[in-house]
Design a protein around this nucleic acid. Structure first.
Lengths: 204, 204
DNA sequence: CGGGTTCTTGACCGAACGGTCAAGAGATCC
DNA sequence: GGATCTCTTGACCGTTCGGTCAAGAACCCG
């Protein structure tokens, strides 16, 4: 929208974003009406349309802010580590921590992928995540740290394992993100035939 | 609904199921109206409600039939193979073939997970898939074919890799299912640090 | 205090939705 | 040919939806 907001307005906007995120994740995007959002916050309907052009724009804003924040968290976590395999591990751990704190976004992104109006935006975000991962994998291959292979496939597989275990183990069973991250790394590094499984994998 | 149908009625019902599957997957469940479905088939609205109690019931029927058919395909593919690791590979290959032929269902299941009214049914189906996989992994561990580990985690990881590569490589890039299945197996068996990567992995 | 801006209200709107139903067409069997 | 059952029609219904807007309250600054 691009309206200039006072601190008070900024706060209202954040209230709307937070409440909508929770409702959309719990009840679904379509079944959650704008009326339900403003009623839940105890304000008039005009408030909603003061801060957002449409329900659709609000939703895209939630997705955009979420993706931005996740990427920032990953970048911060990797810090000045230089070894690509270690960087990958740090990225996985920080993603897991982030998803643990923002479980609602997980559901929202899954939904967004299933509808024509939101899918393109999601695909763009996933391309960025893939490209980030792919660079690390390629670098690790070049340095001989991991054997040659198709870096795209490997990156997608790593992201897939992270994603599914985040959903089933962490969001579904409330297990601590650090533990789940260890399991992701363990599987991704060695696969199910691998043997070096018993030593401590926790990095640094 | 349990209405008894003549062959003609059976065919109409299947037309509705097929058309709705395509529309839901392409455009989303909520944005696709019952009116759009019957108009697309060139029939009156009453036809829809002759065969289904509600739009929701139709959708659940699509999911139910899909899951049943996938499971049947897997069971058929595994045939009389006895080695658990080989059975796992056969299961992965047949799933990939099935998803290639039923890409619409992929999107539908992803959506169904995101909404309170459909999520329980999906979770039940996923529990079955997990349990099937888990049994094979456990068996392989008991026989020493793969090292000990948490069979739940490993099974979910394998299913996750299958799922993400099915989506990105097969449905997204139209690559042949057999190739993608090979890549899934390769990654799951050895991980990204594994070395035995160059021999032919194709089974039998 | 006055004047301008930011924010809020809630009645209202047209459109679209899921679903109903009385009426009738087509097939089938005796 | 009539009785019966399966299937089809489409106008119609009540409800809810996303979105609008004239009016006014709250806040800020000179």
């Amino acid at each position: 929208m691009g309206r200039k907001l006072t601190p008070r307005g900024e706060q209202r906007r954040n209230e709307l974003l937070a409440f909508a995120t929770e409702r959309f994740a719990t009840n679904g995007y379509h079944p959650t009406s704008v009326a339900e959002l403003v009623d839940g916050l105890g304000v008039g309907k005009g408030v909603f349309y003061w801060y957002f052009d449409s329900k659709e724009e609000l939703f895209m804003e939630i997705l955009r802010e979420g993706e931005r924040d996740l990427r920032r968290a990953q970048w911060e976590a990797m810090g000045d580590e230089t070894d690509p395999v270690q960087r990958l591990a740090l990225g996985i751990r920080s993603s897991m921590e982030w998803w643990a704190a923002h479980g609602d976004l997980y559901v929202l992104i899954e939904f967004a992928r299933t509808e024509a109006s939101f899918a393109p935006g999601i695909r763009k975000g996933e391309k960025v995540a893939l490209s980030d991962t792919q660079k690390l994998v390629q670098e690790a291959m070049d340095s001989g740290a991991i054997p040659d292979g198709n870096p795209v496939i490997i990156s997608q597989a790593v992201l897939g394992v992270s994603s599914v275990l985040a959903r089933t183990q962490m969001l579904g069973r409330s297990r601590p993100p650090a533990e789940v991250a260890d399991e992701v790394i363990d599987f991704c590094w060695h696969g199910l035939l691998g043997t070096a499984r018993l030593d401590a994998k926790r990095s640094a």
